[in-house]
């Protein structure tokens, strides 16, 4: 038995070392092919850009760099939208933090990062490369502390803990990620922005986007739920229910950005769910005023909740995206005047 256990131990150790090396040497973005394509494209022409946008489809599909740059002429900005679909907290925070490390000081002036609560991944997704590649020991530490500091009920906490642990284990054993080394995905736009409308005419995954579009426009009453959520935002500003782990992580990202000479904006996009606003809006009171951009409340942003500006329940169409970008530029200019 001793010999058996000894062999198991040594074999396991060798395997563990091998897998750890794999995890250490793989590029930080390997696992998100869309991000890889964008980051490669950005690196090729990085000297052109001084502003960068991170986040999920709420930024990828709604932040139009051309519009933004044209409105910010006084600041001489050149923006690249590096956001990719389905990239939420903590994946987006992980990507941003690691991306910072690749930059020279003062190479970028401004960065936008979507503010989102910790993502509830489906269990099945945690066994995939995309659902786990970002789960390093420090991301896991952040996620578990976040869960612990949250006001989720016990069952939610237990399930989330299981999800993040499983994802972490998968990130270790997942060698499927190495296939990404041989993939050469191409970018679809110079600025990184692709409005959802474009997908309706595109053959790629056409059915899914068309279905989403048609379903929403056949019954737009579902938007009421998001309008109610946007209307609730003012009351969430008064909430003291703050996830301290999330807050300190955001402050950490702001300070890391400053070290690279970057002013980080934390962006709250429109059309999120009520529970998401409930969780992130209170944080804005505690964050430095010049770093938060809230473009979600209904009173000031009615236009983002109109059907004519919508693609589906959660996203704006091209017209809405341009309006969103304009509003964003307006708010940024205001914020930059804050000392």
């Amino acid at each position: 038995m001793k010999q058996f256990l000894r062999n198991i131990f040594w074999f396991g150790l060798i395997l563990l070392i091998g897998l750890s090396i794999k995890k250490m040497v793989t590029p930080f973005y390997l696992g998100n092919s869309a991000f890889k394509a964008k980051v490669k494209s950005f690196q090729k022409t990085s000297q052109h850009y001084n502003t960068i946008v991170f986040g999920s489809s709420h930024s990828y599909r709604q932040f139009n760099p051309s519009i933004f740059d044209s409105l910010m002429t006084d600041y001489n900005l050149s923006t690249y939208n590096i956001a990719t679909a389905g990239t939420f907290n903590p994946e987006s925070y992980y990507l941003y933090e690691h991306f910072l490390k690749t930059l020279d000081k003062d190479a970028i002036k401004y960065a936008f990062l979507e503010l989102k609560p910790l993502n509830f991944y489906d269990w099945e997704n945690t066994n995939t490369t995309r659902g786990s590649y970002w789960n390093t020991t420090s991301t896991l530490y952040y996620a578990l502390n976040y869960i612990n500091a949250s006001n989720y009920d016990k069952i939610e906490k237990f399930n989330l803990t299981k999800i993040y642990l499983n994802s972490f284990l998968n990130s270790f054993v997942d060698t499927n990620i190495l296939k990404g080394l041989f993939l050469k995905p191409s970018v679809r736009s110079k600025t990184g922005f692709v409005p959802l409308d474009k997908e309706l005419s595109s053959k790629r995954r056409n059915n899914e986007f068309t279905l989403r579009y048609k379903t929403f426009h056949a019954d737009t009453t579902v938007l009421k739920e998001r309008i109610t959520a946007a209307r609730n935002i003012p009351q969430y500003y008064n909430s003291k229910d703050i996830n301290k782990v999330h807050l300190s992580h955001l402050k950490y990202l702001i300070s890391k950005s400053e070290q690279k000479g970057i002013h980080l904006f934390l962006l709250v996009p429109p059309r999120l769910k009520d529970n998401e606003y409930q969780e992130i809006i209170p944080l804005l009171n505690e964050l430095p005023k010049g770093h938060s951009l809230e473009l979600a409340n209904y009173v000031e942003n009615k236009t983002f909740y109109k059907t004519k500006n919508s693609f589906d329940i959660g996203h704006l169409n091209l017209k809405g995206a341009n309006l969103f970008t304009e509003k964003c530029a307006e708010l940024v200019m205001k914020k930059l005047q804050i000392p």
Binding site: F11, I14, L15, G18, N127, V173, D174, T175, N176, L178
Partner: peptide, 19 residues
């Protein structure tokens, strides 16, 4: 032998189809 076993494990991890 161990290299062969590790190779199989890596193939399992890399080429494992959807469960």
């Amino acid at each position: 032998r161990w290299g062969f076993y590790i190779g199989i494990i890596l193939i399992i991890f890399t080429f494992g189809g959807s469960q």
